[in-house]
């Protein structure tokens, strides 16, 4: 349904994405991770039709995103990291735009706004950054589009709002929809994102479900660092260590540790996960 083949993109001479290949499916909430500048936002923008790839193909639901055809736009919602709302009431914004989305549910929007404790009668310009973000997330989920792209959705949200966000996104996910969340705040969205995509400048290092990862990698607490381990990092009370999973016993995947492990052992972990 969502296919990216040999995708290349550069900002003038600065190459951002090189030969990227990805296949994404409906019914999942993907976590898109990567260091600063590897092109997470760029990838989301290409998928939403805001940027045109230099070469390669990006096919979303059979559409070429950059053509921005109404049929495609009706099935996509992109939430940018720093959303700037217009100078109108949140409810008015939703009512005027909702009409363009065939599956928009005004009832769901009101409920989500209530859950997020945002007053729909307020103008966007009168709301804080976090509240504006919650309002646009509520609207995005109420459009019931097949693809929702979120760039750092938890940025600017307070602690209670982050847990509300996790709950709301998990409730909103359906078998027909695909949600892609680009984030640096892995802990905010742990237990929500699955599969995990780890992007590097020239490669997709990981595109695997939590189940696949835990079947191939083992996460263990140790008192001391282990030289045999793929990676180990100090934590309170010991070392969180990543091994090849040779026993077949699954362990809880710590996404932040996985990310750090992948960055240090790009080639090895990619090979292990692709076996």
């Amino acid at each position: 349904m969502f296919k990216i083949e040999n995708l290349n993109f550069s900002y003038s001479k600065h190459e951002v994405l090189k030969d990227i290949n990805l296949n994404l499916e409906c019914g999942k909430i993907y976590g898109l991770l990567g260091q600063n500048g590897v092109g997470k936002t760029t990838l989301l923008k290409i998928m939403s039709g805001l940027l045109k790839p230099k070469s390669g193909a990006c096919t979303i639901l059979g559409y070429n995103p950059f053509k921005r055809e109404p049929g495609f736009l009706q099935e996509l919602f992109f939430i940018p990291e720093d959303f700037v709302g217009p100078d109108i009431e949140v409810n008015k914004y939703a009512a005027l735009r909702g009409a363009f989305y065939p599956n928009y549910d005004g009832f769901k929007f009101s409920k989500l706004l209530t859950d997020f404790e945002v007053d729909g009668r307020s103008k966007f310009t009168k709301l804080s950054f976090g509240q504006q973000k919650k309002a646009i997330i509520a609207f995005a989920l109420a459009t019931n589009t097949k693809l929702v792209l979120m760039d750092e959705p938890s940025n600017g949200l307070d602690i209670p709002s982050k847990s509300q966000l996790r709950r709301i996104i998990s409730q909103a996910a359906t078998d027909e929809s695909c949600i892609i969340i680009s984030t640096h705040q892995v802990r905010d969205l742990e237990n929500l994102i699955d599969p995990i995509i780890i992007l590097d400048t020239n490669d997709v290092l990981v595109n695997a479900s939590i189940e696949e990862i835990s079947s191939k990698l083992k996460f263990e607490f140790r008192d001391t660092p282990d030289k045999e381990a793929l990676y180990s990092e100090p934590t309170l009370g010991g070392y969180l260590t990543v091994y090849r999973n040779e026993s077949g016993i699954e362990s809880k995947v710590n996404i932040e540790t996985l990310f750090n492990a992948v960055l240090i052992n790009k080639k090895t972990i990619k090979q292990i996960l692709n076996k």
Binding site: L50, R68, L73, F100
Partner: peptide, 16 residues
């Protein structure tokens, strides 16, 4: 680059 996204991604054709 930021404020224009809302209108660009509204489900209507460029012609409309």
């Amino acid at each position: 680059p930021k404020k224009g996204i809302d209108f660009a991604l509204l489900p209507a054709s460029v012609c409309e």
